[in-house]
Design a protein around this nucleic acid. Structure first.
Length: 462
RNA sequence: GCACGGGUGGCAGAGCAGCUAUGCAAUGGACUGCAGAUCCAUGGACCCGGGUGCAAAUCCCGGCCCGUGCUCCA
């Protein structure tokens, strides 16, 4: 079956056909590093990590580019407040980004270009747009003139020029004093006194928000590429602005084959936001949840749907994750095969992922295999599906090490536990349930779980 | 207000005209002194109101609700 990808522009799932056979050029809008990464970022980059992994599993050579917007108003606001250079703010939040994404098994993209390293290409592109009559120089910067390509408007959101004129009318005054029309957007912003700036033909300044992505994708991929991803909120104006810039600059369309947008994260049914005080950074979330258990939760819903992270939802994902890892551990130490129907599971897993990366359905197949029993075949299956494709497994070495630790921890207390259990068995044989339960409670408090089976009691560490 | 997406059992999520998934949870049973684990089984849904069909969760119309966007938020 073919790999189907939902494209925001055509509003349908379409079979993936790339510009070059066997190769996918994928660009995903990266973060503006003015704060540590939050759960919304995690969801986005996890979603595209799965896209990345599955495309590779499907035999594509993926060229994955993700930018950092390392100069921006909000970064400047923070650097001003702290009295440090903007690059310090950007760098520490980029370091945080790498740290938390690595912990969640997010594979690195092939390239992480920064705005501040792409200035010459941006200036070239703005110059071309001016030369071609699509941009003009205003009092405070260079602007793209929407009216020079009105037919490109609304490709991702269905809005018309008139609608935006009506809707945003009240807010025009706030921004861009040099604009001829409020729908025009900045390509180059002239620096205010004291702001970091780069020289340009139009004066010292810095790039507008949208132009970087057009310049970077052109630089890395050329005039057209296959997949452009980002958060749902970026469709307008950011991604529509990119269509204007790229296509008007090169004259080639469409610049992007498939536009992919991930849904948002809610906390307890409400939008996650700083003002609602339910805002979680990823590293805060790590204090309560294992990074991969969080990954499990965030992949439990298909990427386009909104996801509501209630405590129950996260706890559920946590217990599934625990089961997955112990099933993997048990399978690594198993001697024989489980005899489970792994062929059927593989087929359904592939069908799920081929259907616009439906991780929910794919995870259900994993859960099925997890509960089918341990076996060497299961270990291999889990490694390729839960591990390689979805990134949900810790490394084999890590799992084996944990297993070894557990065994040695068990050995340390084994003698004491066995003695208590023997005493408990005596009590049970004599019908002294009070004493038997007392011993079991004692063991529970020291972290030992006792389970009575048909062949007598077994125990393990909690 | 306008645009786009969505409203399916307790939760997540397929299906997108007939065969009424699936996973977790729940319930019942087996096993247990009890608990747990395990096994077997079961019930339960299609936002509301109209319409078109032999047949609608699925198509059409009208509501309602939720999310996102409408100038720099993934």
């Amino acid at each position: 079956m073919a790999l189907m990808v939902y494209d925001t522009r055509s509003r349908e799932k379409r079979e993936l056909r790339t510009i070059e056979d066997g190769r996918v050029r994928m660009y995903v809008c990266g973060i503006t590093p003015y704060t540590p990464s939050h759960l919304g970022h995690a969801r986005c980059y996890l979603a595209f990590d799965v896209v990345h992994r599955w495309l590779e599993a499907s035999g594509y050579d993926v060229d994955y580019v993700q930018n950092f917007t390392d100069i921006d108003d909000k970064i400047l606001a923070i650097s001003d407040a702290e009295g440090v250079d903007y690059s310090e703010v950007a760098n520490r939040n980029i370091a945080d980004f790498y740290e938390v994404m690595d912990a969640m098994n997010v594979l690195r993209a092939d390239s992480y270009p920064r705005v501040t390293e792409t200035i010459p290409e941006i200036i070239d592109m703005v110059s071309t747009l001016i030369d071609k009559g699509h941009a003009y120089i205003g009092d405070d910067g260079v602007y793209f003139e929407i009216d020079t390509a009105p037919e490109k408007f609304g490709q991702l959101t269905g809005q018309t020029l008139e609608m935006v004129r009506a809707g945003a009318g009240g807010r025009v005054g706030d921004t861009g004093s040099g604009k001829r029309d409020h729908r025009d957007f900045a390509l180059w912003k002239l620096a205010k006194p004291g702001e970091p700036s780069w020289d340009s033909p139009w004066g010292a300044g810095r790039p507008g928000w949208h132009i970087e992505c057009s310049a970077m994708s052109l630089k890395h991929f050329g005039e057209q590429f296959d997949i452009h991803g980002g958060g749902h909120d970026l469709r307008f104006p950011h991604h529509e602005a990119e269509i204007f810039q790229s296509e008007c600059c090169t004259g080639r369309e469409p610049v992007v084959g498939y536009w992919m947008h991930n849904g948002f994260v809610n906390i307890d049914g409400e939008k996650m936001s700083k003002s609602l005080d339910n805002f979680w950074t990823v590293s805060e979330a790590f204090e309560r949840h294992h990074p991969l258990s969080l990954r499990y939760a965030l992949l439990s819903v298909p990427y386009r749907n909104p996801i509501d992270l209630t405590p129950e939802f996260i706890a559920d994902a946590g217990s599934h994750y625990g089961r997955l890892v112990s099933a993997y551990g048990a399978s690594l130490s198993a001697d024989g095969e489980s005899g489970a129907d792994l062929v059927g599971a593989s087929e359904r897993f592939t069908a799920a992922m081929d259907d616009d990366f439906n991780t929910r359905a794919a995870i259900i197949e994993i859960q099925g295999v997890v509960s089918s029993g341990a076996g060497t075949d299961v270990a291999v299956w889990l490694e390729s599906h839960a591990g390689d494709a979805l990134g949900l497994l810790p490394s084999r070495d890590e799992v084996l090490a944990t297993l070894a630790e557990t065994i040695s921890a068990k050995e340390e207390v084994a003698a004491a536990v066995e003695a208590l259990l023997a005493e408990r068995e005596t009590a049970r044989e004599g019908g002294d349930w009070t004493r038997a339960d007392e011993i079991r409670d004692e063991l529970t408090t020291i972290g030992v779980v006792v389970e009575d089976g048909p062949d007598g009691p077994t125990w393990h560490l909690a």
